[in-house]
Design a protein around this nucleic acid. Structure first.
Length: 451
RNA sequence: GACCCUAUCGUCUAGAGGCCUAGGACACCACCCUUUCACGGUGGCGGCAUGGGUUCGAAUCCCAUUAGGGUCGCCA
């Protein structure tokens, strides 16, 4: 029988990074084994269930490339879905839960209590066979010792998570439950429920949690906990997925950067680590830089233009060739697309400020004649290409008896407003003679040069 | 309070009794490359939580302690 796994988030309006990794591991297992990956929305808490909240999850999963074989097509609970075990919203599966509860009631395995329905939990320790953690013998806690039974239907008639989760896994034919370790202790309840329904429970695989950098539990409000931080923060989805693969799992062989296809080949549950992992934003940043560097030109242009537009910089006002040439000088020099506007925005606007420290250091009276001389040298150039610009700048430096840096720095600052950026010669060539002179003159007119 | 899981450089990890003087990656530091920045190259810093066992031999097995995380809800 082919494995059937599922990601079953509740629509809270977020896609947590930990949830994304749970989805990823489920997806990987399905793809590795040739099984099916289902998406089920656990929206039994009707109070906070919205169309938009589900949409956030669907969008996040699609962005990561974790496509589901069965599940909803839109955020609408009554909307279309694919798969023959639907609907895939728990709010649409009420009759299943009712039927199951009645069966439990009839068999004396559950009972009414102050309007709610409680399940009769066995008092004996339950062994949870786990593909990752091993056999876990779950004893009752002191509170459970007092009353081991738990509510499966609230007094308002709403079924509770433990019940709906088990019923759906059962009816959707889920073979492997791959979920966060925070569910491990509760799995005894689920196993008891499966037994009460007279069916063997699925196989369990509890994956370690993702913690904050300081080791504390990651919650919605923590930096980097939400997918939106990456989706809209200049990250490349492949880098995020790659990084997530490295948290709690290792490809061995000192490998770090690898494609999802490669991971699918070698991923398996027994190799998943047992201990929690801390989220290392720096390493993700590094990986993102790697992916940006090796990205195809077209993809790079697309993401760059998008990042610039987001920062209020409209590249459509410029010739396509100019935009591409400008972006070419930026490729591989930054790690996050959100850094691009600050890095290469000067190509698309004349309204930039000069970096204060740079002004102090480079816009000086003694640099004025030097820049004037460089301006003259540039003026005599018949071709404004990087090679010619470099030659002109270097020979001017020789004539002045100064190092090239003495000319490079103020020129860069005057033309870009920054002390760091793309190769100076290339950037000047892209900017073109007219703009370069314009910017040189604008800078030279500043009071700092007068002393 | 009880129950459960876990424990290798700051972080992610390799390591399944001798191959370990513990390997790699990120971060950090130094140097090299160089028009800035970034990349790249070279080198460095840095770890088996503690205490007992078992064994000829332990990062690897067992126990305890400590620490971290999780769970015990008419939330999911």
């Amino acid at each position: 029988m082919k494995p059937r796994v599922r990601f079953a988030p509740s629509p809270t309006g977020f896609l947590h990074i930990g949830g994304a990794r749970t989805a990823l591991f489920n997806w990987l297992y399905a793809r590795h084994t040739g099984g099916s990956f289902l998406l089920r929305i656990e929206d039994t808490d009707t109070a906070r269930n919205t169309h938009e909240a589900v949409e956030v999850i669907l969008h996040g999963l699609r962005w990561l490339g974790l496509h589901w074989d069965e599940g909803p097509l839109t955020g609408d609970a009554t909307g279309p879905y694919k798969g023959d075990r639907g609907p895939y919203f728990q709010s649409q599966r009420r009759e299943n839960y009712q039927r199951r509860v009645e069966a439990l009631l009839v068999h004396g395995l559950a009972y009414a209590h102050e309007g709610a329905v409680k399940f009769k939990m066995p008092r004996e320790p339950i062994t949870i066979p786990d593909l990752i953690v091993g056999d876990v013998v779950r004893q009752l806690t002191d509170r459970e010792e007092a009353d081991p039974d738990f509510v499966i239907v609230r007094s308002d008639g709403q079924p509770v998570f433990h019940l709906t989760n088990v019923v759906d896994d059962l009816e959707m034919g889920i073979t492997h439950v791959i979920r966060g370790e925070d569910h491990l202790a509760n799995t005894a309840k689920h196993i008891a429920l499966f037994r009460a329904f007279g069916v063997p429970p699925p196989q369990y695989a509890h994956i370690p949690l993702i913690l904050n950098a300081d080791g504390s539990k990651m919650s919605k409000r923590d930096q980097g906990a939400l997918m939106t931080a990456y989706l809209g923060g200049g990250y490349v989805s492949e880098a995020v997925v790659n990084y997530l693969c490295l948290l709690g799992w290792s490809p061995k062989g000192n490998r770090e950067k690898m494609s999802l296809a490669e991971v699918v080949e070698i991923f398996d549950l027994p190799q998943v680590l047992r201990h929690n992992a801390r989220f290392d934003a720096d390493k993700l940043l590094w990986l993102n830089g790697e992916y940006v560097r090796e990205m195809s030109e077209d993809r790079f242009y697309e993401l760059s233009v998008h990042a610039l537009a987001k920062a209020g910089c409209d590249t459509n006002a410029f010739p396509l060739e100019y935009v591409k040439a400008a972006l070419d000088t930026c490729k591989g020099k930054f790690r996050l697309f959100s850094e691009l506007p600050a890095y290469g925005g000067f190509y698309f606007t004349d309204q930039f400020d000069y970096q204060p420290e740079g002004v102090k250091k480079d816009f000086t009276p003694e640099n004025k004649p030097r820049l004037l001389k460089l301006r003259d040298a540039f003026a005599r150039l018949s071709s404004f290409d990087p090679g010619a610009l470099e030659a002109a700048l270097k020979s001017t430096a020789v004539e002045l008896g100064v190092k090239v840096g003495v000319l490079v720095h103020p020129t860069r600052l005057a033309c870009t407003g920054n002390t760091a950026g793309p190769s100076l010669y290339h950037l000047l060539a892209v900017l073109g003679k007219e703009k370069v002179f314009q910017r040189l003159d604008r800078a030279l007119a500043r009071s700092e040069f007068a002393g």
